[in-house]
Amino acid sequence: MVSPVLALFSAFLCHVAIAGRICPKPDDLPFATVVPLKTSYDPGEQIVYSCKPGYVSRGGMRRFTCPLTGMWPINTLRCIPRVCPFAGILENGIVRYTSFEYPNNISFACNPGFFLNGTSSSKCTEEGKWSPDIPTCARITCPPPPVPKFALLKDYRPSAGNNSLYQDTVVFKCLPHFAMIGNDTVMCAEQGNWTRLPECLEVKCPFPPRPENGYVNYPAKPVLQYKDIATFGCHETYKLDGPEEAECTKTGTWSSLPTCRASCKLSIKKATVLYQGMRVKIQEQFKNGMMHGDKIHFYCKNKEKKCSYTVEAHCRDGTIEIPACFKEHSALAFWKTDASELTPC
């Protein structure tokens, strides 16, 4: 028979052994919480692992009891992110992403000619849904363009009902005698608006001056306007230097104002010269003088080599300089050979 003292002592040692085997604070589990969370647990106490919002459990147990050994069982529970629905394709646009897991963001952009109808980015929420909702790419359209004052539509073909699509163009023209300031062509831009519209302004030009030794003709009306034409001419023996016609421009000035240049009277009575690549007699070709701008080539002698060369002379507004090397052939010196008859050097 066991003595009462020995039985009491054995019970005390068993209590001490059992009391010393408490469980420590459980290991941390990524993206999970423990309830209740303490620094130690007595045998028989329970804990429950729960995945944080946005994560779901995969494998292993969630509930554990502190055993008499004081060692928690191996925990194979894993908390993984929720996955939102696939959103990698956006019609008429692109999606930029790394993954569709919580809590990642994805961004959106539309192709040229389309705009985002909705948000530019979405986040995968705790519930595994996209927030805000996935957008769509809508086609960019422009309403009918406003017509500037004093302008008309020259070329307008709406391609979406009464509206125009991105990069469609419209061409304007101004009413007669109104000048266009700006580009006559506007385009449907990426914001759904038209590029800058032109202006049509009334333009008047002063009466063009008559050139000295010439004349000018223009429309017989009180005011000369944009695109009106003036024509110029010169009196006999004068030549027009500049265009025969001038136009009233959008700046209110004439496109050009020509002048009349005088012809050149030649002091040479008789000579053979080159004119437009042909040998001509100066007394016949230019008996009334040379017109402004005409060029001739005089023959000169190279006495040492007994050959000839040519030097150019140019009529400029009544003045021509005869080359110093040219010697007019005298009829009295019939035995001398004219420079034009010598072999070219």
Rank of each mutant, 00 (worst) to 15 (best):
H177Y: 12
F178Q: 01
A179C: 08
A179W: 03
A179D: 04
M180R: 07
M180L: 15
M180K: 05
I181D: 14
I181A: 13
G182H: 04
G182E: 06
G182C: 10
N183V: 00
D184M: 08
T185Y: 03
T185F: 00
T185S: 10
V186H: 01
M187R: 13
M187D: 00
M187W: 04
M187E: 10
C188W: 13
C188F: 11
A189F: 02
A189M: 12
A189S: 15
A189K: 07
E190D: 15
Q191H: 08
Q191T: 06
N193E: 08
N193Q: 10
N193H: 08
N193Y: 05
W194H: 03
W194D: 06
W194N: 02
W194C: 09
T195L: 02
R196Q: 15
R196P: 04
L197E: 08
L197K: 08
P198I: 00
P198S: 08
P198K: 03
P198F: 02
E199S: 14
E199I: 10
E199C: 00
C200Y: 06
C200N: 04
C200W: 02
C200R: 05
L201G: 00
E202V: 04
V203R: 11
V203G: 04
V203F: 08
K204I: 14
K204H: 05
C205M: 07
C205D: 05
C205T: 14
C205Q: 08
C205L: 08
P206C: 09
P206W: 03
P206T: 05
F207G: 01
P208E: 08
P208V: 12
P208D: 07
P209H: 04
P209G: 09
P209I: 13
P211T: 10
P211L: 12
P211S: 11
N213W: 02
N213L: 09
Y215A: 15
Y215L: 15
Y215Q: 13
Y215C: 04
V216K: 05
N217G: 05
N217M: 06
N217L: 09
N217I: 00
Y218I: 12
Y218F: 15
Y218W: 11
Y218M: 12
Y218E: 09
P219Q: 04
A220T: 11
A220V: 15
K221P: 12
K221Y: 09
K221I: 11
K221L: 07
P222F: 04
P222T: 05
L224R: 11
Q225M: 14
Q225I: 10
Q225A: 14
Q225L: 15
Q225V: 14
Y226H: 09
Y226E: 01
K227E: 09
K227Y: 00
D228C: 08
D228A: 07
I229V: 15
I229S: 01
I229F: 04
I229N: 01
I229D: 00
A230M: 06
A230Y: 03
A230H: 00
T231R: 13
F232G: 03
G233R: 14
G233N: 11
G233S: 12
G233W: 10
C234Y: 05
C234R: 09
C234L: 11
C234H: 09
C234T: 13
H235Q: 14
E236H: 11
E236C: 00
E236P: 00
